[in-house]
Nucleic acid binder design. Structure first.
Lengths: 158, 158
DNA sequence: CAGTTCGTTCATTTCATATTGAACGAACTT
DNA sequence: AAGTTCGTTCAATATGAAATGAACGAACTG
């Protein structure tokens, strides 16, 4: 089990995802859907990845919220279908950018409270935050350049 | 303990770092050094952050390998000094780019082994990897643009 | 309207890894 | 050269998040 290139890829996606700090199964699901190319149900994920129904649901929804996976409702079926969006990595970068911006803001707020006599520290920390912000802007510009308004509002909530 | 803005910042850096999948203490050390602005010893980190000597050593070295922290040997002191580099976030992004490229390569190798009848999958996965690679290139270009050869070879090894 | 089949939730368990602290070796000091 | 003072390593432990699976409600089905 797991020495086919396909399985190997799925495993690797899981490993990569967990390296980035997320749940391994989310990466595996993304890998699976990327391979399949067509909508797959939660039950199919459970079967293919040998995971519990709860994990499939939770992690598929996580991917959905990040905009890398879309949920479809095929006519004639009660099961939800999950499908990797055309360019998952774009949405991925977008959510990274969003997180970066959030962190930058958080840091800015904190550093604004630094005492007067620590102005040097405030400056260094401020520069740190600013770079994060610029990087976020930069990433957004980058993804926009590659995928000019293709997907449309992939994920609303969080 | 920990409601001064300074401490708050250090805590937040730790949280941010662990969100990214790294050890919390590494983030705290970076925050601490960023605040201080001047070289600090392992002993000082232990004292300030209330951590063990082992953690201080291990995590300082981790930061060093990522190029966000530099080790100095002040004359007249046996202790090593650790100092946040001028623009830590640049080195940070650089190491992200490197990791991205590595992952892209890994995926490419695997997808090359996909069976013939799965060429559609190979194509999707290939596009995924390619985007990763491009993003890595993009990040490198971005950091190079901001900091045009300023720091000099921050981290050799890995 | 009783009986299924879904997806979601949440308390519990499992699992990974961050953190510790003692032991070690190297480089100084006198 | 004996005695310190460093930084590093590594086995053991602690900690936090991921994964499970049973329970629940909603939406179909006959």
């Amino acid at each position: 089990m797991s020495d086919s290139p396909i399985d190997d890829f799925i495993q690797t996606m899981g490993l990569m995802w967990s390296t980035e700090g997320g749940p391994r199964i989310a990466g595996q699901i993304l890998g699976y859907l990327l391979i399949e190319g067509e909508p797959r149900t939660l039950a199919q994920m459970c079967e293919a990845l040998q995971i519990s129904k709860g994990s499939a649901s939770t992690n598929a929804r996580l991917l959905e919220s990040k905009g890398v996976v879309r949920r479809v409702h095929p006519v004639g079926s009660r099961q939800d279908g999950f499908l990797a969006v055309p360019h998952p990595s774009h949405s991925l970068l977008k959510s990274v950018a969003t997180r970066l911006r959030g962190q930058a803001d958080e840091i800015s707020v904190i550093s604004a409270r630094f005492p007067e006599e620590r102005e040097d520290a405030r400056e260094r920390v401020g520069a740190f935050a600013e770079f994060y912000r610029q990087t976020a802007d930069f990433m957004d510009a980058w993804t926009a350049r590659i995928a000019p308004a293709q997907g449309e509002t992939p994920g609303e909530e969080d």
